[in-house]
């Protein structure tokens, strides 16, 4: 039982971070129906930014750097939307273009970072990196706990933003019914741009939360791509709150599977669950039934 809990608790903690990573992907899909394959590479870029702020002379704690990361990636996301994404939004014929555009952008980010920083793994180790506390027999890593708390805080702020602010409501309206939203005088291009920026920034903050216990390489994103998709699909593609629950579930499965199989194949369980959900409930665990024609 203790062994099980020893896996369950870190699973929940890392799951909170997955939830934050996935909520950005889910928000973007929900609003503009774009599956952003570059999402995990924005996370990678944010990890490098946190690393640069920490190791590059400023000595800025990665958790304190979060507001700066959020703002930088909000602007970066909006710029990427304005420069690229807005041209491939909408019609069904654009699906292929969306897929290859976002894959291409992700590759460009990876290789630019590779050129600049080489493939040497980078680590961010603040003084408390190895600290932790025992609750009963369960060891809880301090950095993982902080990462989880940060994720919950950001999720709460996201909830307030989407439900209380004018822009947030516009985003929800666009996500609910794109066409009707335009009739209500919502500027869809602006809403998309902001949603893309916020979505990217959410995932970026998730990346900052990870750096204290995840080493950074230009290709680190790929390990998280399918985890993020799995979380989003689990919760129902396009649902932000669903993505959150999905993320936590994925973290738990990844971690608890180590009770039975090696840590090296923990992601096999995640991918298998991902496929199972796609086959059995393609609209997610809480998804709505849609009309066929």
């Amino acid at each position: 039982m203790v062994e099980f809990l020893q896996f369950l608790v870190p699973g929940i903690l890392i799951g909170g971070v997955y939830a934050l990573l996935a909520s950005g992907l889910g928000l973007i899909f929900g609003v503009m129906r774009v599956v952003n394959f570059a999402q995990a590479d924005f996370m990678m870029l944010a990890m490098y930014l946190s690393w640069a702020l920490f190791a590059g002379g400023f000595g800025l704690d990665p958790f304190l750097a979060v507001p700066a990361v959020f703002v930088v990636f909000l602007l970066l996301g909006m710029a990427v939307h304005w420069l690229f994404i807005r041209f491939v939004i909408g019609r069904r014929e654009n699906h292929d273009a969306q897929v290859i555009l976002t894959i291409g952008l992700g590759l460009i980010f990876q290789n630019l970072i590779l050129i600049k920083y080489s493939s040497e793994p980078r680590v961010v180790a603040p003084s408390y990196a190895n600290a932790g506390d025992f609750i009963g027999d369960i060891f809880i890593s301090r950095v993982r706990l902080y990462a989880f708390l940060l994720s919950v805080l950001v999720a709460a702020l996201l909830f307030v933003f989407l439900n209380r602010s004018r822009t947030g409501r516009a985003i929800r309206a666009a996500s609910e019914n794109w066409e009707a939203a335009t009739y209500m005088g919502i500027d869809i291009d602006r809403t998309n741009r902001i949603a893309f920026g916020v979505g990217v920034a959410l995932t970026a903050v998730g990346g900052s939360a990870l750096v204290t216990f995840q080493s950074i390489t230009p290709f680190v994103g790929f390990r998280f791509v399918v985890v993020m998709f799995a979380a989003v699909v689990l919760g129902g593609l396009g649902s932000v709150s669903g993505a959150f629950v999905g993320g936590v579930l994925i973290g738990i499965i990844q971690s608890v599977s180590q009770v039975w199989t090696s840590a090296a194949v923990k992601n096999v369980w995640v991918f298998a669950l991902f496929l199972l959900i796609l086959y059995v409930r393609p609209n997610g665990l809480f998804g709505k039934v849609q009309r066929a024609i």
């Binding site: 690229f84 041209f87 491939v88 014929e93 654009n94 292929d96 273009a97 969306q98 290859i100 555009l101 894959i103 291409g104 952008l105 992700g106 590759l107 460009i108 990876q110 290789n111 630019l112 590779l114 050129i115 080489s118 493939s119 230009p218």
Partner: peptide, 22 residues
């Protein structure tokens, strides 16, 4: 000097095709 040159060619090609001639 540029380790990711090959991948950058594929990436640039994908982005350009998506935007110009899907």
């Amino acid at each position: 000097s540029v380790p990711g040159a090959q991948e950058l060619v594929y990436a640039a090609a994908l982005v350009l095709v998506a935007l110009l001639i899907p």
